[in-house]
Amino acid sequence: MSRFLSKDFLSGVMFIAFGLVALWFGRNLALGTSVRMGPGYVPHMLADIMIILGTIISLVPLYSNATTREKETIWAPVGGAVVVLILAIRFVLPLPASLAQLSTDWLLLVATVGIFALLLICVLVNMSRGSHVAPSEKIDDVEPPKWRPITMVTIGIVVFALLFETTGMFPSLVALVLISSAGGDEFKLVEVVGNIIVLTILCVVVFKVGLSMNIAVINGVW
């Protein structure tokens, strides 16, 4: 199943997800006409494009790594189903009004039909000439992530944000440096304390004195 973990497949899914999110949250924005575009016109166009590109990107690695037999028995129906499904999601789910809209706006109609035709052609062309794509083509898998650095860094910044206004710069600085240092490979307390001291001095000099920003070092004290 490693082809479902390839970078291309997952990033395609991500693009589709962004497109769908944009469609959903933009569902109340008026489309307008191509002469007087409403606030929703461009977002919808972009969301459509995102979904289509995402679909193509995610299908290509799945398809190019399948055997000829798989291509005929699985991918022809799956490809067709995906296209139909996207059409259905695109028009039924977020936009009950968009069909009525289409009949009055030829540009949107042409653009939508054209884009979906393009998608269909891409899928079909890939399928028909697929037999000469080597099944052993290299799959670029996503490396298994190391969770510690990314979680520690993110938690560090969020804690900093939460502490900063209530407690001032110094406590939030200590928290950020401690937490993010724990995200690295080596953690030596003496070094981290030294780092905190140096950074505190540096920050006070640069931000408080140098740029004279209105920041409390410790809230209520300085």
């Binding site: 944000a161 993010s180 780092n195 950074l199």
Partner: peptide, 16 residues
């Protein structure tokens, strides 16, 4: 390991 926290800190204060 010294640089990373420093860079993060500057990002955070800068963003604020």
């Amino acid at each position: 390991r010294f640089l990373a926290p420093a860079i993060l800190l500057f990002c955070a204060i800068g963003a604020y």
